[in-house]
Structures are given as C-alpha cells and as structure tokens.
Amino acid sequence: MSNTSTISKSLIEAIKARRTYYAISNQSPISDDQIISLVQDAVKYSPSAFNSQSARTVVLLGENHAKLWNIVKETLRKIVPADQFASTEQRVDSFKAGYGSVLFFEDTTVVEGLQQQFPSYADNFPKWSQHSSAIVQYVVWTLLEEQGLGASLQHYNPLIDEEVKQTWDIPASWQLIAQMPFGTPTAAPGEKQFQPIDERVKVFK
C-alpha cells in the first residue's frame, strides 16, 4: 500500500502548478518514507516501450544529497574559469540547500537486450528509452509538486557519471540521465510565458 499522503489537488491542477523551483530549503512537508513511496510508484506505474521498464532511480537524502552536490561543485571547479566560478558555485549551492535529490538512470542492458530481440526496431530503442525516462521524470516532478515540494531538473551528466557510480555503487549499465533536487519552496518561481495554444494544438473533427 502506498505511503503517500492523500491527494489534495486534481491531476490537472498539479500539472498546472508544477514549475521549476531554484529556491528550496532543507525541509519537507512529507516523510522520507512518503518520498520514497512516491518515487517507487512513479517508476512502477510509468509506461515504457514494449513494457521494457528500463527506468532506474536513486533517491538521495540527508548527507547523501549534500554529497552529490559537492561532487558536482568540485567537478565544475576543475573546468570552470576561476573568475566565473562564483556564480556556478552559487547555483550548485542552491541545489544542495534542498532536502533531497532523485537521480534518473536508464538501464542500457535492457535496451541492448531489446535491440537484439527485435533487430528491426534496434535504432528506435535508445530513443524510446529516453522517452521512458522523461515520463518518469515528469511523473516524479508532478507528484513532488502535489505534495508541496518544489523541484528542478538538472543535467550535470556525463561530467559526474563515474564519480556518482563509484560513490553509490551504481551498476555500470545504468546510464545517468538527469538529477532532480527538491525541497520546500522558499520563493515563488518566475512568471511563465505561454505561446498561443491554438498554434500548438490543432483539432480536426
């Protein structure tokens, strides 16, 4: 049985409310068990091509969350010019200030197995794998929003891939796709501009 708290928003309201939050705190309105259950449900029930279930995630809380962003900071310190590093450090520290992070991976062994099993679709499976990961990312992001947590999606891979795998003993076949720091929002996101919807959605009936 899921440990997530009672849903307080309709699905469409949660979708509309989901935004990118950079200002987050080391607080959570729900328990660690609820956060873990939320991610587990997202991974379990999100669709994937051929029901491949290639998505993998790692939930980092407490010191493990902080360790991730220290890895990112020290990795970037080696490649960002010193006179430009202050702004980079400030951005990374804003992620570290959060409550936790979700790492999104795809298991390349699953993808390669499908390529061998269905050679006529071989070129498509890596693309479909990315689609699967994107769905899981969006579901987790929206569920976090629904529970009162703000998040953003970051991509410091492949710069941090090897150290992340070594630090948390991640299987070599897991390909890091994205990182999602989250926490209680401490400031509202910026205003979002929308393109005219009738230019983006065509209807024929």
Rank of each mutant, 00 (worst) to 15 (best):
residue 114 L to E: 07
residue 115 Q to N: 08
residue 115 Q to L: 10
residue 116 Q to Y: 03
residue 117 Q to E: 13
residue 117 Q to W: 04
residue 118 F to H: 11
residue 118 F to L: 10
residue 118 F to K: 13
residue 119 P to M: 09
residue 119 P to A: 10
residue 121 Y to N: 13
residue 122 A to W: 03
residue 122 A to L: 09
residue 123 D to E: 15
residue 124 N to R: 15
residue 126 P to V: 06
residue 126 P to S: 08
residue 127 K to T: 10
residue 128 W to M: 09
residue 129 S to W: 01
residue 131 H to Y: 11
residue 131 H to R: 11
residue 132 S to N: 15
residue 133 S to C: 14
residue 135 I to A: 10
residue 136 V to E: 05
residue 136 V to G: 07
residue 136 V to A: 11
residue 137 Q to L: 09
residue 137 Q to K: 05
residue 139 V to D: 12
residue 140 V to T: 05
residue 140 V to S: 01
residue 141 W to Y: 09
residue 141 W to G: 07
residue 142 T to L: 02
residue 142 T to A: 06
residue 143 L to P: 01
residue 144 L to D: 02
residue 144 L to M: 08
residue 144 L to C: 09
residue 144 L to H: 05
residue 145 E to Y: 04
residue 146 E to S: 15
residue 150 G to T: 00
residue 151 A to P: 07
residue 151 A to K: 05
residue 153 L to D: 03
residue 153 L to A: 11
residue 155 H to G: 13
residue 155 H to T: 12
residue 155 H to I: 07
residue 156 Y to F: 15
residue 156 Y to S: 09
residue 157 N to V: 03
residue 157 N to K: 14
residue 158 P to N: 10
residue 158 P to K: 12
residue 161 D to W: 06
residue 162 E to V: 06
residue 162 E to T: 12
residue 162 E to S: 12
residue 163 E to Y: 02
residue 164 V to M: 07
residue 164 V to A: 05
residue 165 K to V: 00
residue 165 K to Y: 02
residue 166 Q to S: 13
residue 166 Q to E: 10
residue 167 T to Y: 01
residue 168 W to D: 01
residue 168 W to N: 05
residue 168 W to T: 03
residue 169 D to T: 13
residue 170 I to E: 01
residue 170 I to G: 01
residue 171 P to Q: 08
residue 171 P to S: 05
residue 172 A to L: 09
residue 173 S to W: 01
residue 174 W to M: 11
residue 174 W to R: 10
residue 174 W to V: 06
residue 174 W to S: 03
residue 175 Q to F: 03
residue 176 L to N: 07
residue 176 L to A: 06
residue 176 L to S: 04
residue 176 L to W: 06
residue 176 L to M: 14
residue 178 A to S: 15
residue 179 Q to H: 10
residue 179 Q to M: 13
residue 180 M to N: 13
residue 181 P to F: 07
residue 182 F to C: 09
residue 184 T to I: 08
residue 184 T to V: 12
residue 185 P to D: 05
residue 185 P to R: 08
residue 186 T to F: 04
residue 188 A to Q: 14
residue 188 A to D: 11
residue 189 P to S: 10
residue 190 G to W: 00
residue 190 G to I: 00
residue 191 E to S: 13
residue 193 Q to M: 06
residue 193 Q to K: 13
residue 193 Q to N: 04
residue 194 F to K: 12
residue 195 Q to W: 03
residue 195 Q to S: 12
residue 195 Q to P: 00
residue 196 P to H: 05
residue 197 I to C: 06
residue 197 I to A: 14
residue 198 D to S: 15
residue 198 D to A: 12
residue 201 V to R: 05
residue 202 K to C: 00
residue 202 K to Y: 00
